[in-house]
Structures are given as C-alpha cells and as structure tokens.
C-alpha cells in the first residue's frame, strides 16, 4: 500500500512503506529524556497559528516521542485544541486559520508544498471530544474509511482487527450490522478509535476523548490508550488533570500570554509535572488554584 504523504503526482517527498497493520519505526529525529535517546515522531518548531489577525498560539517547540502518550494541559482558551489540530492540518478546515512554522512528521514538514493533507490526516488520525460514529453499521464505520483510502486487503479481517485493538470486538462481534448509534457512549468512542486505527495511522490525536463519558467508560478508554501506546504515538488534550496524570508519559503545559496568545510554558515527564513542576504557573494549575 502506498504510504506517500503526497497523493497522485510523482513529486514524492516521502515514502515510507508500512506493509501491515503495525506502525513501524521510522528513521526520525531523536531527543533525550533522562539521558536516554528517544525517537521523535512529531516535532513542532516555531509553530504559530492565527485565526485572521488573532494569534492563537505562539512559537510552540514541542517534541512528541514515538509510542509515548503526551498530554497537553492548560486553562480554557489557551490554544490546546488549536495546537492539536495543527498537528494533522485539521485547522485548515477553519477558513480563517493560518499556520506558520513547522510540524515535522518523521522528519518531513506536513505543511510543505505538495504534501496531501488527506494523507497527513490518515497517518495522523484524530478522535474527537464527542463520539461521532457515521450513521452506518458498526462494520461500515470501520470499513468505509479504509475502503475510500484504497484498502485492498480483506475488509472483514481489518474490521475485526481494528475492533479488537479498540477493545470493542467482544462486545459487538455478534451485531456488526447494527447501527453505530446503537452503542453506548463509551462504546461509540471506542468505535471511533477503531475507525481511526483502521486506516493505519502512526499517530492518534485525541481531543478530550472522555469528556462525554462516565467514569467506567473513561477508565476503559484510558486503559485502551495505554494498550495502543505500544504501537502508536498518542497526543491527548484534556481538561482533566487527573486523567493527564494517569495516562500520559509526558505533559506539555500551555498558558495564555499577556497578548492572549497561547504559549507552551513547561514540558516534562508527567511524573515531574505533577510532583515538582518548575514553573509556578504550572504548580498553580496542577494544584487547581488557577485556570
């Protein structure tokens, strides 16, 4: 299967073959955490996003380590979701949005000329706040995306594999032809995760994936995230600090600057952020005294 970030033309900027469902190591950049080199799947450099004249996030330099979960936290309106959506060019769907700087995916700038945003979004998938299954059967929710991306393999196997990875198979295997809407909220969200997995991404972006779910469904999604992190690089935006503390390996703290532009003020291992943050603003936020 063709894994180019460009689509039909021959101006290939990057070719990475991923012959099966498992995302492979890519020769990407490396960074160091506690002295140990770690591979970076995504990097932002001087990333700025504008909505019209309004600067929403300013000069974000952030590394997302491969097969790790990175949480982005910060008060409402600080640009967390804007940052997340800039990681797979989802912001382009907002007509007045403009992005400057770089988002490097396995060493290649996803905003470079000739890069196909549809392919970017396939490789860097997204799960949204509210479960949003298609008004189709459970089976079709999984199969549809793969089909339109030109998947030529056995669809039944892909559906089963994706649902198993999303820890939903046992609950739905006997009712694959029922509507996705017939599932509970937590099941619908896992269906959306299965749908994202089915198109063979390497990164999964999650925007408040549990905010509409009850605690048990939330813990199931968190457990699933841990499972998925052995294969995928995961970035999660959450308002729930306990959730960020529970599930993530690394945490980036964002704040509004004086001019109301969002900035990243601290990034570290999650354990450090929640026990001895360096920035007093992070301390105030994670202890619940600000934001």
């Amino acid at each position: 299967m063709d894994e180019r970030l460009v689509d039909s033309s021959d101006r290939v900027v990057s070719l990475t073959e991923t012959p099966d469902m498992v995302a492979h190591d890519q020769p990407g950049s490396r960074t160091e955490t506690n002295g140990a080199p770690q591979e970076r799947t995504l990097e932002t450099r001087d990333l700025r996003v504008y909505y019209g004249d309004f600067l929403a996030i300013r000069d974000v330099d952030l590394d997302f380590l491969s097969r790790k979960i990175t949480a982005i936290i910060g008060p409402s309106g600080c640009g967390k979701t804007t940052l997340l959506r800039s990681l797979n060019r989802m912001n382009e769907l907002v007509p007045i949005a403009r992005t400057e700087g770089h988002v490097m995916f396995q060493g290649q700038d996803i905003y470079a000329e000739h890069v196909d945003p549809v392919e970017v979004r396939r490789r860097i998938g997204m799960v949204f706040q509210k479960p949003n299954p298609f008004p189709k059967s459970i089976y079709e929710n999984i199969a549809w995306g793969a089909r339109i991306h030109g998947y030529k393999g056995e669809l039944d196997a892909l559906v089963e594999e994706s649902l198993k990875r999303a820890a939903l198979w046992e609950e739905v295997k006997d009712k694959l032809d029922q509507s996705g809407y017939s599932l509970s909220g937590g099941q619908q969200q896992r269906l959306c995760i299965a749908r994202a997995i089915a198109v063979r991404p390497e990164v999964i972006l999650m925007d408040e994936p549990c905010s509409a779910l009850d605690p048990v469904a939330t813990f199931r999604i968190e457990e699933l995230m841990r499972e998925l992190a052995s294969i995928y690089t995961i970035v999660i935006v959450t308002h729930n600090m306990q959730q960020a503390a529970r599930v993530s390996d690394f945490t980036a703290m964002m704040m509004l600057g004086e001019d109301k532009a969002g900035e990243m003020i601290e990034y570290d291992e999650t354990n450090t952020i929640f026990t001895r943050p360096a920035d007093p603003r992070t301390e105030d936020y994670v202890t619940g005294r600000f934001g």
């Binding site: 600090m241 306990q242 503390a245 929640f274 026990t275 001895r276 943050p277 992070t282 301390e283 994670v286 202890t287 619940g288």
Partner: peptide, 8 residues
C-alpha cells in the same frame, strides 16, 4: 487528589 506542592 493533591498534586505538586500539595502532594509533597
């Protein structure tokens, strides 16, 4: 659920 300085 204290964190950071509160937890310490």
């Amino acid at each position: 659920q204290p964190a950071a300085g509160d937890l310490r």
